[in-house]
Write a protein that binds this DNA or RNA. Structure first.
Lengths: 102, 102
DNA sequence: CGGTATCCCGACCGATACTG
DNA sequence: CAGTATCGGTCGGGATACCG
């Protein structure tokens, strides 16, 4: 879990999106709503299965994404952004844009 | 120095602003241009002198802030945002705003 | 398929002391 | 005033193996 020593809003936000893969996961989920675990893996190949699971868990805990588990065999899950998570769109795009031109 | 394994623009940006105190330093410099070392310390009291120096050095290295050293005794330095750093304003404000209402 | 469990190393960061 | 040096603890995250 994220270490918590939050002072100001900007840090609150960064804590929630600055895990190693979180921002990329959110970014991917913005373009690909409702992704399965393996789909996310393919979209972010450098991220290990372990880390993907960890980051997804934290994002879910922070209420940025939600997880749907279908009780089937083999297992099937789907991840999507919550309303709260979707509100990050302009922020994520701002980060993306600044990084692109700088 | 920041570990570098950059894939996409959004991560480039986060690498540069998500050090423990970087975002706050930038935020402070947006409202208080041209800050001395001790002034920043007072603005961010929870940040140790050591960490402040480290973070400032990385921000300078990444071209987000610039440092002016006045050759006087006792020493006097001033930190301010570069043009590149100032362009982060909307991004930082976006982070701030999202954190404030969420 | 969608995860956990375990081991382990290096980066991050606090505390403290020293310096030009 | 504006830093640097050193030590040491914590923890993020990689590699690998296992599971329902």
């Amino acid at each position: 879990m994220t270490k918590q020593t939050i002072q100001c809003p900007i840090e609150r936000t960064l804590k929630q999106i600055s895990g190693k893969w979180k921002s990329v996961i959110i970014f991917r989920l913005l373009e690909h709503p409702r992704c399965r675990f393996n789909e996310l893996q393919k979209l972010i190949p450098e991220c290990s299965r372990r880390m993907l699971a960890l980051q997804l868990k934290e994002l879910e805990h922070d209420g940025l994404i939600s997880k749907t588990v279908y009780p089937v065999v083999p297992p099937k899950t789907e991840y999507s952004l919550t309303e709260r998570g979707k509100k990050l769109k302009p922020v994520i795009e701002g980060l993306q844009e600044w990084g692109r031109i700088n």
